[in-house]
Design a protein around this nucleic acid. Sequence first.
DNA 1: CTTACTGCAAATATTTTGCATTTGG
DNA 2: CCAAATGCAAAATATTTGCAGTAAG
Lengths: 158, 158
Amino acid sequence: MTAQSEPGFEPSGLAADATSGDDLRTRLREAGFRLTPQRRLVLQAVVDLGHSTPEEICAQVQRTADGVNASTVYRTLDVLEQIGLVRHTHLGHGAPTYHAADDANHVHLVCEGCGVVIDAPVGVADPLVGTLRDAYAFELDVQHFAIYGTCAECAGGR
Amino acid sequence: MTAQSEPGFEPSGLAADATSGDDLRTRLREAGFRLTPQRRLVLQAVVDLGHSTPEEICAQVQRTADGVNASTVYRTLDVLEQIGLVRHTHLGHGAPTYHAADDANHVHLVCEGCGVVIDAPVGVADPLVGTLRDAYAFELDVQHFAIYGTCAECAGGR
DNA sequence: CTTACTGCAAATATTTTGCATTTGG
DNA sequence: CCAAATGCAAAATATTTGCAGTAAG
């Protein structure tokens, strides 16, 4: 039920910067927001979890620290999304899934069978991007892009 | 906020059959279900509306007849989906969107700006289908496929 | 007749909101 | 200090479930 290609911890230091304090503080202040411990914790949780629902983020944050109220988590995710550090995708079922914006260079392949989320490089969608642009003047948002289907495991007898 | 290519009423008589009673009754009975007026009404609403949320289906059904309870609508959508007459897609925001299975030969292009849903033939996804199959053994479910992006209107200055 | 189906109301689950208190800058 | 952010509890939504009465076959 979790990602195969585990980002987990910052691929190349990008995510680390976001949470180290500096970048986060700057970004927040530019938009008129303040830096609070809760916001740092929530961003850290999003980065660490890779893909996660608000509920999972709540749980993760409770665990890691004094606890952040659920409503604060929701409000914080909004703020972090506004300043572009976090993005969300609808993977289907119920809740939206959040991930660090830095970690967005992939599309999500969601298996309808087992729910696994496979990350594929954005490049796989290039042909489709071209087709849609040409035929419909539709600009595909590859980041916010969830693709449904069946993974090898679930397709093969197993 | 509605589809551009309006299916609305049965493209080639296919959908008509589904609601005319015969096919619906047969399909239901084969799976051990009964034919009820409510089920006919809900299916009719799904066919007529093209894409619709449970809420919209409720509204449509109330209007057309004596009224069907919301919980019955939810239960009926499940049943209709089980017997393959209806399918649902997650278009993002909140509620899932239902449509007649017959009406499924297209992918949904969802504009993040204005929310419009454009129907494109499944063919547009063929290159992607091939790529994913080859590279990930991932079998794309083109039917259950919602694609996010920005439509011409919202992209162009307007 | 028998069993499935429906309506209703209560239960869940999820996200939002109002407000008093706390706190960042 | 002052505005913004938090926590909490209540509200708003959306969907599910238990149950007794109704109806399909």
